[in-house]
């Protein structure tokens, strides 16, 4: 038999176990709120990274070397 309190016949142990479970239940809401908070924070971070990636892509597209490179690739593609 394991030492899991559910196997106990001792009412003191069982009542303490009920209290411990109620305790976990009482803080469950805060855990959920913190997870929402983390998700919101990550979403913000992803949106920030997206914006930065778009800005870099635009900057890259404007770069003369990239433009020349693209033109060369197009010519090579035609041959």
């Amino acid at each position: 038999m394991s030492d899991d309190p559910i196997n106990s016949d001792d009412p003191i142990v069982l009542r303490a176990e009920i209290l411990a479970l109620r305790d976990q239940l009482a803080v469950a809401g805060s855990g959920k709120e913190m997870l929402h908070d983390i998700v919101a924070e990550r979403d913000c971070h992803i949106a920030e990274l997206d914006a930065r990636a778009s800005a870099l892509a635009e900057e890259l597209a404007r770069n003369p070397i990239v433009r020349v490179g693209r033109a060369v690739m197009q010519r090579l593609g035609r041959r």
Partner: peptide
């Protein structure tokens, strides 16, 4: 006290 699980053993 009992409804909220008393003091936390943690």
């Amino acid at each position: 006290l009992l409804a909220v699980g008393g003091f936390s053993n943690e």
